[in-house]
Amino acid sequence: MNRQPLRLAILEATRILEQAGVASPRNDAELIAAHVLGIDRGRLPLTPLVDPPVVESMRRVVEQRAKRVPLQHLTGWAALGDITVDVGAGVFVPRPETELLLEWGLKLLKGREYPVVVDLCTGSGALALAVARARPDAVVYAVDNDPTALAWARHNADARAEAGDTPVRLYSGDVTDPTVFAELDGLVDLVLCNPPYVPEGTEVPREVSDHDPPQAVFAPGGGLAVIRHVVGMAARLLKPGGGVAMEHDDTHGGAVPELLRARKVLTDVRDHQDLAGRARFATALRG
């Protein structure tokens, strides 16, 4: 059995993915190779030659990725902060841009002992679980209204608890319900949210349109319907000095800060860009 250079297999995978219109073909080709080999991506240079079955396994995964199946569905996981969570059909895949929102939240919590954190529209549970990992002393609550997403979140929360992380308190609820987490009014240090915010009718990549649950992506009211409720929840949940950070569409760089400023109890409203320079999330503090 003639062994083959892994470098050539990655180059071929990159070519196929580029032709298919995948946004980051080289990145995805390397991650697919690492997945098939069962190693970290950084160890790929230490594996110069591979057996033909490995090349064939890579080819099959690359074929699926070329059909625009999300890479995370093919590998079965997505990363956020210092953790990975399992993802698949029926749950929104965490995005790298959300790292910046997480960083802002963790920075706000510095110097606070036993902070109370709420993650709204938790989906896979990634944000809540990343906070619990970074801050073992935190009391973290998470909520979603979708049963499939909650099943994924429960699975991921159980896995993180087994790994020794602080358990997250997971609930079924809708952010449009004014009674959700009413017992926490005025007690929360940090509210995080990555809600559905893409305006209905917006053209999105096939990875999103074909695989992400629509209710986790799109929102009526120009994409602001859910965000309006999240702003109201944050205003009542936060304690003085607490903060809220919520992701939004790149067309909402003016609208979401305006909604936050409309709440007199919220101050220091700011909008933040992602690494590509697009308006991505807004923050505010409770006065």
Rank of each mutant, 00 (worst) to 15 (best):
A216T: 03
R59P: 02
T84H: 05
V116A: 03
R3K: 11
D210P: 02
A282F: 03
G164N: 08
V61R: 01
V118R: 02
R286H: 12
E103M: 08
V69N: 05
K239Y: 01
P52I: 10
A138T: 06
V265S: 08
W152F: 13
Q72W: 09
F218C: 03
E18Y: 00
V54T: 15
V116L: 12
R95W: 06
A78D: 06
R206Y: 04
G76A: 11
A163V: 02
R160P: 00
G201T: 08
A128G: 14
R286K: 12
G76H: 11
K67T: 04
R7H: 11
V36C: 10
V217Y: 14
L100G: 00
Q64H: 13
R270F: 05
V256Q: 05
V117H: 08
L237I: 03
E103K: 15
P70E: 07
D51R: 09
G277W: 14
L109H: 07
A126V: 02
D86I: 00
G123R: 01
T251W: 08
Q19K: 11
D185R: 13
A234P: 09
A13D: 07
P115G: 10
N156G: 09
G38N: 12
D212K: 03
V140N: 03
K264W: 06
L192R: 01
V50C: 12
G21N: 11
P195G: 08
R169P: 00
A13C: 11
V139T: 15
F281G: 01
R228P: 01
A219V: 02
E200A: 15
L127W: 00
N156Y: 03
G21Y: 06
A255V: 00
G125T: 04
P136H: 10
V87F: 03
H155W: 07
H155E: 04
A138C: 01
P213A: 09
D174E: 05
V244N: 07
E63F: 08
P220I: 00
R270P: 00
V244W: 10
V117M: 12
A282V: 06
V204D: 05
A23C: 00
R154A: 14
G173M: 07
R41W: 10
